[in-house]
Amino acid sequence: MKITIATDHVNEKPWNKDGRSGVIRTQDAQAETKKFRQSVRLDLGNGEAYKPGVYELDVEDNMQVGEFGDLKFARRPTMKLIEAKPAPVAARSAA
């Protein structure tokens, strides 16, 4: 599966429930196969943001069986960077 990440921006959503609190950190991406293309959210947990670029996600390597026998996708998938996106070039000022 091809995953494209356009920016290193991290979305942070604070939560508070029953005296506990935290921040849900996600990063927007585009998932693509031969059958579909869809915007998705990648859960970052406390980890670093993915660098912008095109990644290959091996679906079989990122599947697991849950405690009740259900098929689950890895919470933080492992992906291989196949094409880095160049850093934006700063605009030059006129002298």
Rank of each mutant, 00 (worst) to 15 (best):
M1R: 00
K2A: 03
I3P: 00
T4S: 13
T4G: 01
T4I: 08
T4N: 04
I5E: 09
D8P: 02
H9T: 13
V10M: 07
P14V: 04
W15A: 02
W15Y: 10
K17H: 15
D18V: 00
D18R: 15
G19L: 13
G19C: 03
S21R: 07
R25W: 12
R25F: 07
T33L: 06
T33I: 11
K34T: 12
K35A: 03
F36E: 06
F36R: 08
F36I: 09
F36D: 09
R37V: 13
Q38P: 02
V40G: 00
R41P: 00
D43V: 05
N46F: 09
G47N: 11
E48V: 14
A49S: 11
A49E: 04
A49N: 03
G53H: 06
G53N: 02
G53A: 02
L57Y: 11
L57Q: 10
D58M: 01
V59M: 03
V59G: 00
V59Y: 01
D61M: 08
M63G: 01
Q64L: 15
V65D: 08
V65H: 05
G66D: 15
F68L: 11
D70C: 05
D70K: 07
K72M: 12
F73L: 03
F73Y: 13
F73N: 03
A74N: 12
A74F: 11
R75W: 09
R75E: 14
R76K: 14
K80E: 15
L81V: 04
L81D: 10
L81S: 04
I82K: 00
I82A: 02
I82N: 03
A84H: 09
P86R: 06
P88Q: 13
P88R: 06
A90Q: 10
